[in-house]
Design a protein around this nucleic acid. Structure first.
Lengths: 339, 339
DNA sequence: GATCCGAGGGAAACCGATTTCCGGAAAACG
DNA sequence: CGTTTTCCGGAAATCGGTTTCCCTCGGATC
């Protein structure tokens, strides 16, 4: 035991963890601290974890780490975790419930202190039940759970203003004179889809226009297909609002393939701003989400819960903003080529 | 002890870890396995780690997880780790040596089994010394270290063919009739820079042309500045080869700002293929690196070392390929507008 | 002066698995 | 039949901290 170096044995632990009630003589404490720095002593985290049931690690569960959306969340979370001497696991689940459950089980076994779910939970009943069980086991040993997107479970949540953001974009397009605005929504199992769709519908109805919602699934091929079907339907829209970045990539391919020129033939808005939007042609108008901040907030929240001092409301909504670029233009300049 | 459920005590450990030499009666072993599955027994990883000095975790150290290049490596590594029941730490170091050292120290304290360095080491002496010490400490407890890019240290390495890829792109441009090809290189502290530059220079000299190398630093603003300086220099080049994806993003901004049209005014090639290149205008010709495969190979190598059965050569070079898109065109169609 | 109380420190239990060490029983051998 | 292996299982040590339990000592109280 490295600590024998100075004098005491278990007293060292008390000196180094002043959180507990047992008093330690300041002089003794000083000696201990000197010894630790002299010996460059560092506690064995696994030994500590064996007693305390958890390790100073957090985890972020995302669908796909190569998706710029999730990567930014992970960066924010990992940075904040690092600042608090926590390490960060990253779990890329590919939207596979089985993989996700397996991840969470491994996390539990490894004594993770907090799990951040960066994507909406699936509405699947079996998944929900199994996940609830895992999460309860984690909470049993003192771990905390935070959602970074709306989920069905009643977890503490850090989320961006999906409804407000969708309203913002819709109103922007309306203000440009568009009133036939199509919307590609997300998968129905995910709350985010409904929230964004609701914002869009709300803004449309408030302006006295009929919403035109096309089903989508938040994936790139899904966005491609949804765009194709919309164009084929000849529904006669002059603006297209796509409810996430990944689908927008697919839409861009499809529009390029069909030689639909943006914004001349069609104004295009996206929920979710990723760096790539600054390099596409045209550069895309998008709803900017402070993803890194959400990641940071998630870790802060998780750590606060760990210390039993979280006073935030259960759901905290982070504001979003409209980033206007070149893909949205006034209706007069938009040929109704698709009517 | 959950295992008391059937009969034995420490025998269970032997039954569950047949790797060791102590024999176990097959019948007993069967009873133990039945009990474990009945009780849904799962070993406490921290207790196990306390003895074995390490946890079934790996870590990937990258400069920036939001960079598509690194994200793809991490995805490959995390998937492969998951398949082997290992969890994956991700460390986004922002190219800060202090952050990186701190990460590695935390990893060591947490008993990480393997560390994968996804970026070239800095040539800084103090950094090198400190890192060497950390890594030796990790190896002392049986952890392994793998480099996923050329580094100065003599670690097992999985790397893409930097020199060959640079030759490939250069030869592609030469074949199109270009001979005044500029090259934006990377920071001199990084081996990758030198390797790619060497490939470019080799191909140019082999063709009897003078290389034109502009300094860069692998960052986006760096790419912007390097491009600007090249254009200002009126060096009269008709093609530009940028040695990594991030700088290419900066270059795109600069070219767009100056209304240099690609490939009409300038052919553009990039080392490093990222999804965004399919959505830019024009779509960029790039050297494709199998980054996910490199991540997978890194984990495989690390696990093999852990089990003392790594028979690979120290440095394994992964092939790259040329993805031809719209940003490179024959010289005849390229106005020497920049001459 | 006896009792009580709190400060402060040490010994030992504990977390849960792995790994010696050891011993009994069966098998192999002379 | 005695002796030496071999097989197999249990008791106990170990990993390195944290926490409980207990003890001592000095000061305060009655």
């Amino acid at each position: 035991m490295a600590r024998l170096a100075d004098v005491s044995a278990s007293t060292a632990s008390r000196a180094l963890n002043p959180a507990h009630s047992h008093p330690v003589n300041p002089a003794t404490r000083k000696r201990v601290l000197e010894a630790t720095s002299k010996l460059n002593y560092q506690p064995n985290l696994m030994a500590r974890g064996l007693r305390s049931r958890r390790l100073p690690t957090i985890s972020v569960i995302v669908h796909d780490i190569t998706d710029a959306y999730f990567a930014e969340i992970v960066r924010g979370a990992a940075d904040e975790a690092n600042r608090n001497s926590f390490l960060t696991f990253v779990c890329s689940s590919r939207r596979d419930p089985a993989v996700e459950l397996r991840y969470v089980e491994m996390l539990r076994l490894s004594g993770v202190s907090a799990v951040l779910f960066a994507a909406g939970g699936l509405l699947d009943r079996a998944y929900q039940r199994a996940m609830k069980k895992q999460v309860e086991a984690i909470q049993e040993y003192g771990g905390s759970v935070v959602a970074l997107a709306p989920r069905v479970e009643r977890w503490p949540t850090e989320v961006c203003d999906n409804r407000g953001g969708a309203q913002l974009m819709t109103e922007h397009l309306l203000r440009l004179g568009h009133h036939r605005i199509a919307f590609i929504t997300g998968p129905p199992q995910v709350r985010t889809s409904h929230e964004r769709e609701a914002g869009y519908v709300l803004a449309m109805k408030a302006a006295g226009h009929d919403p035109l919602v096309a089903p989508g699934d938040f994936t790139e091929p899904g966005g491609e297909q949804a765009t194709a079907r919309l164009l084929d339907s000849r529904a006669g829209f002059t603006a297209l609002f796509i409810s996430n970045d990944t689908m927008a990539l697919g839409a861009l391919s499809e529009l390029r393939k069909r030689k639909v020129e943006v914004p001349r033939d069609l104004s295009l808005g996206v929920f979710g701003d990723i760096p790539a939007w600054g390099y596409t042609t045209p550069r895309l108008t998008a709803i900017r989400i402070g993803l890194a901040e959400i990641g940071v907030a998630g870790v802060r929240r998780a750590l606060a819960i760990l210390q039993g001092q979280d006073s935030s409301p259960r759901v905290r909504v982070h504001p979003v903003s409209l980033v206007e670029r070149d893909s949205t233009a006034p209706l007069r300049r938009t040929a109704a080529a698709l009517a």
